[in-house]
Nucleic acid binder design. Structure first.
Length: 292
DNA sequence: CTCTCACTGGAGAAGGACGG
DNA sequence: CCGTCCTTCTCCAGTGAGAG
């Protein structure tokens, strides 16, 4: 069965599920939104990608399932030559909240502990492929009630991830999926360090000295592995943390800017807007409307 | 693989005006 | 007081070319 290059369903505002299928022939790297307030399940049908999640780069192959949690920094990148085909499903808290309370709590907890990249044993792959096939069919022909099937199918896949997480979920193949060449390890170390200390001022030369490499080399390697420049990455995690504080506390925007590492308030404002496309105050008022 | 050098665009600091 | 939105200027991060 062949499908058009691109199919999608789901209205972010109204539906708790969004499903999208895409085939790309040329090189492609993900655009602006590097995290979002909903879960994402990503299934690679064909091709090979590098997926950078939080602080680690993973090699993702056809048949792998990737689970991105809410508000988790991620980015996909090209690996070698062109074509890849993937399906992504977004679902939000609402979908899980439709479950009975014990199941909801169990799911949320399990997903919170899930490995981001799941490489299932061959025997279990047919199950996933069947589900993906069903998503595609429903998406393609959109018969009456297809959104019910989408919702149900996505929930099934989420359940699979949750079970995988609970069973200790780390197959032999998985252990080797996070890229571990020296440069990948170095970049991951730096990313982890930045995640822990983004509140402090960050300077390339100090960072380089801390990790025993030259500044020039560090900025090159970091970009290669993560897809982000160091300053971009620091800004992203700072703004992400600022968003969390705006949602979950009543601290003033000025305090938050300082707390996440921006010495300069107006620069914080500019950065916040360029990343989230809204001002900090606007973000706070919008996120307090929908209770998440 | 690891690093150096030189160049340049853009990030970031500083400060002021203004409105709610 | 709190936040937005300008402008101006400085300097450093990012990068192409290339070497050990």
């Amino acid at each position: 069965m062949t499908y058009p290059h691109h199919m999608e369903y789901g209205v972010p505002a109204g539906e708790s599920v969004y499903v999208e299928y895409m085939r790309r022939d040329g090189p492609y790297s993900m655009d602006s939104n590097h995290w979002h307030p909903f879960y994402e399940i990503y299934y690679l049908i064909e091709g090979r990608r590098t997926y950078f999640i939080r602080d680690t780069a993973y090699s993702v192959e056809a048949g792998d399932l990737v689970l991105i949690r809410r508000h988790e920094l991620h980015k996909t990148m090209q690996t070698g030559e062109g074509a890849h085909t993937r399906v992504i499903a977004h679902f939000d808290e609402q979908l899980l909240q439709s479950l009975p309370k014990p199941e909801y709590e169990w799911m949320t907890d399990a997903l919170a502990h899930c490995q981001p990249v799941i490489r299932l044993p061959l025997a279990a792959r047919g199950y996933v492929e069947g589900h993906i096939g069903r998503l595609m069919e429903e998406l393609h022909s959109q018969p009456a009630g297809f959104m019910l099937v989408l919702r149900q199918t996505v929930l099934d896949l989420a359940l699979l991830c949750a079970r995988h997480a609970q069973s200790g979920g780390r197959t032999e193949a998985e252990a080797s999926m996070s890229l571990t060449s020296p440069i990948h390890r170095k970049a991951s170390e730096v990313a982890r360090y930045l995640n822990d200390s983004f509140e402090q001022p960050v300077h390339l030369h100090e960072l380089a000295a801390r990790f025993y490499v030259s500044p020039y080399y560090l900025s090159r390697v970091f970009k290669e592995v993560t897809g982000f420049t160091i300053i971009d990455y620091v800004n992203l995690i700072r703004i992400k943390e600022a968003q969390r504080l705006l949602r979950e506390t009543s601290l003033s925007v000025t305090d938050i800017a300082g707390q996440v590492g921006f010495g300069n308030f107006s620069h914080f404002g500019k950065m916040f807007k360029s990343i989230t496309r809204m001002s900090a105050r606007q973000y706070r008022s919008e996120s307090s409307q929908k209770v998440r």
